[in-house]
Amino acid sequence: EESVKIVRLVKNKEPLGATIRRDEHSGAVVVARIMRGGAADRSGLVHVGDELREVNGIAVLHKRPDEISQILAQSQGSITLKIIPATQE
């Protein structure tokens, strides 16, 4: 059973501070990098390897990473992410 986590981040004009990529094996959209000091890093709630399912209620599974980045870039104020946390080894 996948544990889905709802994360709310507050982002002003600054970038979210995370990059995403598509996992070639599973097809999932995952967090590739977290930039120090960005909104994602400061929240402490988003981690490399987390699978991104939704951004502000928009399912991202069938979107290209550049489309998802665009949605994230255009979002201001509160951003709600639905993520499946990376499995902690």
Rank of each mutant, 00 (worst) to 15 (best):
2 E>D: 15
3 S>P: 15
3 S>Y: 13
4 V>E: 09
5 K>W: 00
5 K>S: 13
6 I>T: 15
6 I>W: 15
7 V>I: 15
8 R>N: 09
8 R>M: 07
8 R>S: 09
8 R>Y: 07
9 L>M: 09
9 L>G: 05
9 L>W: 06
10 V>D: 14
10 V>T: 13
10 V>I: 12
10 V>M: 11
11 K>P: 09
11 K>T: 15
11 K>E: 07
12 N>E: 10
12 N>K: 09
13 K>F: 09
13 K>R: 13
13 K>A: 11
13 K>H: 14
16 L>V: 09
16 L>M: 09
16 L>K: 01
16 L>D: 02
16 L>C: 05
18 A>G: 01
18 A>Y: 04
18 A>H: 00
18 A>F: 15
18 A>I: 15
19 T>G: 06
19 T>L: 12
19 T>Q: 12
19 T>M: 11
19 T>I: 13
19 T>P: 01
20 I>T: 05
20 I>L: 15
20 I>R: 00
21 R>T: 14
21 R>F: 06
22 R>E: 07
22 R>F: 09
22 R>G: 04
22 R>N: 07
22 R>Q: 10
22 R>K: 13
23 D>S: 08
23 D>H: 09
23 D>P: 01
23 D>W: 02
24 E>L: 10
24 E>K: 13
25 H>L: 12
25 H>V: 14
26 S>V: 03
26 S>E: 03
26 S>R: 08
26 S>W: 01
26 S>C: 04
26 S>Y: 02
26 S>N: 10
27 G>C: 03
27 G>E: 07
27 G>L: 02
27 G>K: 09
27 G>Y: 01
27 G>W: 01
27 G>Q: 09
28 A>E: 06
28 A>K: 15
28 A>R: 15
28 A>C: 10
28 A>Q: 11
29 V>M: 15
29 V>F: 11
29 V>Y: 14
29 V>R: 03
30 V>T: 13
30 V>Q: 08
30 V>F: 14
30 V>C: 08
31 V>D: 02
32 A>W: 08
32 A>Q: 11
32 A>Y: 07
32 A>T: 14
32 A>E: 14
33 R>S: 15
33 R>W: 08
33 R>N: 14
33 R>L: 03
33 R>D: 15
34 I>S: 01
34 I>K: 04
34 I>C: 04
34 I>N: 01
34 I>F: 03
34 I>L: 10
35 M>R: 13
35 M>G: 06
35 M>T: 15
35 M>V: 14
35 M>W: 12
35 M>E: 15
35 M>I: 13
36 R>H: 11
37 G>W: 03
37 G>A: 03
37 G>K: 05
37 G>L: 02
37 G>Y: 05
38 G>P: 00
38 G>A: 05
38 G>M: 08
38 G>F: 05
38 G>R: 03
39 A>G: 04
40 A>D: 01
40 A>Q: 00
40 A>T: 05
40 A>N: 00
40 A>E: 01
41 D>L: 02
41 D>M: 06
42 R>A: 08
43 S>A: 06
43 S>Y: 04
43 S>F: 02
43 S>V: 01
43 S>M: 04
43 S>H: 04
44 G>P: 01
44 G>H: 05
44 G>I: 00
44 G>F: 00
45 L>F: 06
45 L>V: 14
46 V>I: 15
46 V>Q: 02
46 V>M: 09
46 V>Y: 02
46 V>N: 01
47 H>V: 04
47 H>M: 06
47 H>R: 09
47 H>K: 10
48 V>W: 03
48 V>E: 14
48 V>S: 06
49 G>A: 02
49 G>D: 05
49 G>Q: 02
49 G>K: 03
50 D>S: 00
50 D>A: 00
50 D>C: 00
50 D>N: 01
50 D>F: 00
50 D>R: 00
51 E>M: 06
51 E>H: 05
51 E>N: 03
51 E>Q: 10
52 L>G: 01
52 L>W: 03
52 L>P: 00
52 L>T: 01
52 L>K: 01
52 L>N: 01
53 R>Y: 06
53 R>N: 05
53 R>I: 15
54 E>H: 02
54 E>I: 00
54 E>K: 03
55 V>Q: 00
55 V>R: 01
55 V>M: 03
55 V>Y: 02
56 N>L: 00
56 N>Y: 00
56 N>T: 02
56 N>H: 01
56 N>V: 00
57 G>W: 00
57 G>Q: 04
57 G>K: 05
58 I>F: 06
58 I>M: 12
58 I>Q: 12
58 I>E: 13
59 A>M: 08
59 A>K: 14
59 A>Y: 04
59 A>W: 01
59 A>R: 12
59 A>P: 14
60 V>M: 10
60 V>F: 05
60 V>W: 01
60 V>L: 13
60 V>P: 02
61 L>W: 14
61 L>K: 15
62 H>D: 15
62 H>W: 07
62 H>G: 14
63 K>H: 07
63 K>L: 11
63 K>R: 10
63 K>A: 05
63 K>I: 03
63 K>Y: 08
63 K>S: 07
64 R>M: 11
64 R>K: 14
65 P>E: 12
65 P>T: 14
65 P>L: 14
65 P>N: 11
65 P>Q: 12
65 P>W: 07
66 D>H: 12
66 D>Y: 11
66 D>T: 09
66 D>P: 08
67 E>V: 07
67 E>I: 05
67 E>F: 05
67 E>C: 04
67 E>S: 04
68 I>Y: 02
68 I>G: 03
68 I>D: 02
68 I>N: 02
69 S>A: 14
70 Q>F: 06
70 Q>C: 09
70 Q>W: 09
70 Q>K: 13
70 Q>A: 13
70 Q>L: 07
71 I>N: 04
71 I>Q: 09
71 I>Y: 08
72 L>P: 02
72 L>A: 06
72 L>C: 10
72 L>F: 13
75 S>W: 07
75 S>C: 13
76 Q>Y: 10
76 Q>C: 12
76 Q>W: 07
76 Q>P: 10
77 G>P: 07
77 G>I: 03
78 S>K: 11
79 I>E: 03
79 I>W: 09
79 I>A: 07
79 I>K: 05
79 I>S: 04
79 I>R: 03
80 T>A: 07
80 T>R: 07
80 T>H: 08
80 T>E: 14
81 L>F: 07
81 L>Q: 03
82 K>H: 08
82 K>S: 09
82 K>F: 00
83 I>T: 08
83 I>S: 04
84 I>N: 08
85 P>K: 11
85 P>H: 07
86 A>V: 10
86 A>G: 13
87 T>E: 15
87 T>I: 12
87 T>C: 15
87 T>G: 12
87 T>L: 12
88 Q>I: 11
88 Q>E: 10
88 Q>S: 12
88 Q>N: 13
88 Q>K: 13
89 E>S: 14
89 E>L: 10
